[in-house]
Structures are given as C-alpha cells and as structure tokens.
Nucleic acid binder design. Structure first.
Length: 578
RNA sequence: GCUCUCGUAGUUCAAUGGAUAGAAUGCAAGUUUGCGGUACUUGCGAUCUAGGUUCGAUUCCUGGCGAGAGCACCA
C-alpha cells in the first residue's frame, strides 16, 4: 500500500468512516508531504477546538504511522492542519517504478472526437478538438483500458446538397478540378487542394441558395436524393466527395500524431434516429408535433434549455435526431458501455443538454444511456500577434497553423539543429511545434478559449511543451553519460525534488478521474523546474562516487519517466535528443 | 429580452471551501572552470464591485458592472 492510502486509513480510523476530509499535497513543501484538514472538519460537530482535537489525533497518528515506518515527523500547523513528513526510506520506495494505474481496467469506454465536416477543410476548430480528444483517449488508456475511438462526420444535410449542386454545375462547365489523381499515389497537399475546393462549393452554394430560388429548388431535390439514397449522379458525387474527405482527414490526423477513430457517418444513423423520434411522438409522449415539425419541449423548470426541432417539416431528421441515432448505435453496438465521451466545441453544449434531456425521458434504458454520455467541450483558438493574424486570415486551417508554428521553431533553433539530417530535422521540428500547440491548449481547463501567440516566444520558453521536451532530452543525455545500467536509489537524505516526484501517480489518477489536463501540465512544469534547479546546483556525475552517482541517476531516471509518460498522455512525443 | 459560461499581476494561464493566492511571460539585477543557457537565482507586480453563508471564500449564494456563447426547422 502506498503512503497516501496508509495515512488515509489511519485518519479514517480516528475520524470515522463517514467523515469527509481532505488528504492533500500541500502547496508548500515546508508543510510536509501530505496534509489533512480532518480536525477542522470535526472540531465543530465534536464541540472541541481544532487545535485540541489535533493534539489528540497527532499523538495517536504519530505512534501508528511511525510504527509502520511511514513518517518521520508529524506536526500541527495553522488553524489546525496536520502535516505529515515521510521517512527517506518511504520516499525512495514511492519513487520506484510501480505498476501503472488500473482503476479503469475492464471498463468499456467510448471516445468520439475529431469528426470532420464533409465539404469543409480541416480547420482550427478540428485541431482544438483533436488536442482535447487525443488527451481524453490517452488519459483513459493510461487508466488501464483501451477506449474505442469513434468519429462522427457530418455527411448529410441541406448545406451539403448545396455544395453538391455547385460541384455538379462546375463539372458541366468543365471548371471543376480533376480528381482522377486519387487513383494513383498522391500527397496530402493534393488532397487538401480538392478539399479546399469543396469548401468553396459549400460557401458558394449557401450564397447562391439565398439569391436564386430556382437553384434552391434544385438543391432541395438533391437533398431529397441524398436522404433517400436515390441512385443517380447526386449520390454518386456525394460518395466520391465523402471518400476523398475521409482519406484527407485520416492523413491530416496522422500527421498530427493522432488517429482517426472508427467512422460512423451521420447518414448511417439518421434513419434510426428519425424512427426513434417518431416512435415517441404524440400525446403524452416525449416529442410533439408543432408547425409541421417534430419538436421536444423541455419542462418549464429547465430554464437552461429551449424547445428544439428534431425532425423538420420536410420530414428530415435534424442534428438532434441524428444524435439520438448515434447514441442508440453507440450503446447497442459496442457491448456494455460504461462511459461515452464526446468532444465538441463548447457552443454545442446547449444542443447536447437538450438531446440528453429528451432521451432520458424515453425509458429507463435511455435514461441510463443519457447518464453515461458525457460531453467534453473545448474552446476556440485565438491568435495574437500580427504575423500570425495576417497569414491566417479568415478561418485558419489547421495545417497552415502548424506550418506557421513549425516555421517559428525553425527560425529559433536553426543553429541548434544544424547537425541533424533533413529527416531528423523535420521530425523534430514537427514534434516541437505540436508540443507547443498541444501544451498551450491543455495547460488551461478544457472549454475556454486559448490565446496562442508563437511570436512572443510565449510558447517556446518557460511553461511550454518544448521546455518539457528539452528537460526530458537533458535527462536522457545524463543517463547516457552516467553509464549506469540500472541506477538504484541509495541511502541518502531525500531532496525536495524527490519529495515532489513521489506524487506522480496521485496526480495522474486525479487527471484521469476528472479529465483535467491542466493539472498534469502544471505538475510536469513543477517537476521540470525542480529538476532544472537541482541540476544547476548539483553535479550529477562525479568521478569515483559510485554510490552517489547511482542515487542521483536514479532520480534523473524517475524524472525522465514522469516527463515522457506525462507528455505522452498529453499527446506529445519526447525525443531522446533535440 | 431569456439562458449558459467567464471576470485573478501589464499579458497568458493555475489554485476538489483551507495555511503567506501559484507559474510563465514582461521589466530590473545576477549565474560559465559541472555533465545541454530552449537553463538557473533574486526582485517588482493581481482575486471587477456591493452584500450574504462560515471557524475560514478567488472558489458557494444574491444584486450590480463587464466579456463571450446559445436561444425552432444549420451542423
């Protein structure tokens, strides 16, 4: 059992099973390795002063915990906190590599993220989505179960019919781009040109529909053909566009070090979604008819959500009904699902509240599905700095953003990477740029907007992904130079660095439970800073000091493990050299 | 108008109701014989406002001011 659990158990013996107290890592290491507020919580109900109670608790805890060899010191501090100081031996033990967290073992977890919009290029919103989604995926995996990753591309809507209309017209006039290259080997650049073209079709189609009623009518017919899967040119073109987009997205995600999940198209679930809604429409049922459409009217006390249309007056399911189909598919086709996470822009929060509220009223099964469905929102990425803004005018494309950051990386590190081969350079520059972006996003709680500014060097120095990578590379190089095969901790007084290192598993557990990447980022910064500080004032490798070297290198190895593992959960690579 | 989210150093972000509100950046001053200076050390600097709840509030509640997002046939 680890020190945390041992201390917690002993406190519970004194306070009783039901007392809700905190056993935490104090903000200041001077307050010990763990601290508890149990006496502050219990003082009032027991009618004694916190300090008097603390005196009593400390006397008992000291005997019990010293006997177990867990603590070397215990003291009362502030208004009645109890601070615990671990023994050097216990600290060493905690810092040995242990089995990873297995709290999610055996759980079936779904993560839906990075869903492309057909006919829209891979833009900055998708990048944000991928950063958060990849984190959730890896955090769950780190918790002991490999999640099923899904993506839910929007491939059917009136908007898409408008784009198809334009593409069709362009083809007739012979001005649409040639897509035959797709039959041969091709590059991401070539794919993205086509996707960009589809993007313009979408925009042009939407604009044309507003001013030209004739065209709009034709577009409606195309939409009908798509929904009804009528054979003909419309559906044929639609299939082509869809596969081009999917390939493009797969490749774009791969270039981010991520992977596209199993695809569920909207068109795969819209029918079942519609059917479910229709089955529960009518007097006294979940959904009602209103002005030719089928809507859900929330209870009056739910002031936070509004009436929403699930099936429009043309009989086509909206996004809401499609999501019902998706929930159905998720919970019926992937076994006994424990949790289903889905990552989207925070502006969709209202939408999901409505959908989940509606579905939870269908029956007990649907209620349990709704309860297990958890929306993880992400914010938007905003750019500061004139250089970025001008070059990324309009809605910035993800690959352009990455290219811009990569360019900054190259400028700032050209002399440092000069000795590498071109291939190594490219891979390193990409890793550094991606870590800068990923950490810049994940250092804040999910759901808020991110200000990203590569120009002010904000994202390359200090609290940044590259700083963590650099520190990791430093530990690698030390371990190599140290030449000790398997360094073990020796019998030395524990340093403050070692006392910080022992909390990694607790932090990770908390991060997995609460899906709070910022807590992991924060902890990794603390470790990197402490290590760099330790490094500046201690010589790690000292000639002839075999025992000392082994001990110090064991510390270095622990730091390296934590940085690499933590960066991985954040979606970042940690190269041995940089 | 209604609803939701959010107001913390000059700036960008932290802080399950706890101890002296932490970092980074910025600015100022330093650190090289020792292994990677994308580093380290020191200093300056903040909880929008008025109340309330309690042993204790940046955190919870109410009002005000300010910002962003969402509110019926888009996704």
């Amino acid at each position: 059992m680890n020190a945390y659990d041992v201390i917690k158990n002993e406190i519970q013996k004194l306070g009783g099973e039901n007392v809700s107290f905190i056993l935490e890592t104090p903000s200041d290491i001077a307050y010990g390795d763990y601290a508890t507020n149990v006496c502050l919580v219990l003082a009032k109900p027991r009618g004694v002063s916190p300090k008097a109670l603390a005196d009593e608790f400390v006397a008992k805890l000291e005997i019990a915990l010293k006997e177990k060899g867990v603590i070397s010191k215990i003291e009362i501090a502030g208004p009645g906190f109890i601070n615990f100081f671990l023994t050097d031996e216990k600290i060493r033990e905690e810092n040995k590599e242990k089995e990873i967290s297995i709290r999610l073992k055996g759980k079936k977890i779904l993560v839906e993220h990075s869903s492309p919009n057909l006919f829209k290029p891979f833009h900055i919103g998708h990048l944000m989505n991928n950063i958060v989604g990849e984190f959730v995926t890896r955090a769950v995996a780190r918790g002991g179960t490999q999640p099923q990753v899904l993506c839910f591309p929007s491939d059917i809507s009136f908007g898409i019919a408008k784009a198809i209309y334009i593409w069709k017209k362009d083809k007739e006039e012979g001005v649409s781009p040639d897509i035959n290259f797709l039959l041969q080997d091709h590059s991401l650049e070539e794919e993205s040109k086509i996707v960009d073209y589809f993007g313009t079709c979408y925009v042009r189609g939407v604009a044309l529909a507003k001013e030209n009623q004739e065209a709009e009518k034709e577009m409606r017919q195309i939409a009908k053909n798509l929904y009804e899967k009528n054979s003909g040119e419309d559906v044929e073109l639609w299939h082509k566009a869809r596969s081009i987009n999917t390939i493009y997205f797969e490749n774009a995600l791969e270039s981010l070090g991520s992977k596209m999940g199993k695809v569920i198209f909207e068109s795969d679930v819209e029918e079942i979604g519609k059917e479910i809604v229709l089955n529960h429409t009518g007097e006294g049922k979940v959904f009602t008819e209103s002005q030719g459409a089928i809507v859900y009217v929330p209870d009056e006390e739910r002031k936070d959500i509004n009436t929403s249309v699930f099936i429009n007056s043309e009989g086509h399911p909206t996004y809401e009904a499609k999501d019902i189909g998706l929930i159905y598919k998720k919970f019926t086709e992937y076994g006994n699902v424990d949790v289903s996470y889905f990552i989207t822009d925070t502006e969709q929060t209202h939408h999901f509240k409505v959908v989940l509220d509606a579905t939870s009223k269908i029956d007990a099964t649907w209620k349990s599905w709704a309860d297990k469905s958890i929306h993880v929102p992400h914010g938007r990425m905003l750019f500061k700095g004139a250089k970025m803004s001008s070059r990324l005018g309009g809605v910035p494309l993800a690959l352009d953003v990455i290219a811009a950051v990569e360019e900054e990386v190259r400028e700032k590190s050209s002399d440092k990477i000069a000795h590498l081969s071109d291939e190594e350079k490219d891979s390193l520059v990409r890793d550094v740029a991606l870590s800068a972006l990923r950490v810049a996003v994940l250092r804040s709680k999910p759901g808020i907007n991110i200000n990203f500014d590569p120009e002010t060097s904000l994202s390359f120095e200090g609290d940044s992904g590259p700083y963590l990578m650099y520190t990791h590379a430093r530990t690698s190089s030390l371990l190599e130079k140290g030449g000790v095969e398997n360094p073990e901790f020796g019998n030395f007084a524990a340093t403050s660095l070692e006392r910080e290192l022992l909390h990694y598993e607790e932090v990770l557990t908390d991060v997995i439970d609460t899906l709070s990447p910022q807590k992991l980022v924060s902890y990794l910064f603390t470790i990197a800073q402490s290590f760099n500080s330790y490094y500046a004032s201690n010589q790690i490798i000292v000639e002839e000091d075999v025992e000392g070297n082994a001990h110090r290198l064991a510390i270095v190895r622990r730091v390296k493990y934590i940085l690499k593992d933590g960066l991985h959960v954040l979606g970042c690579n940690a190269p041995e050299r940089m």
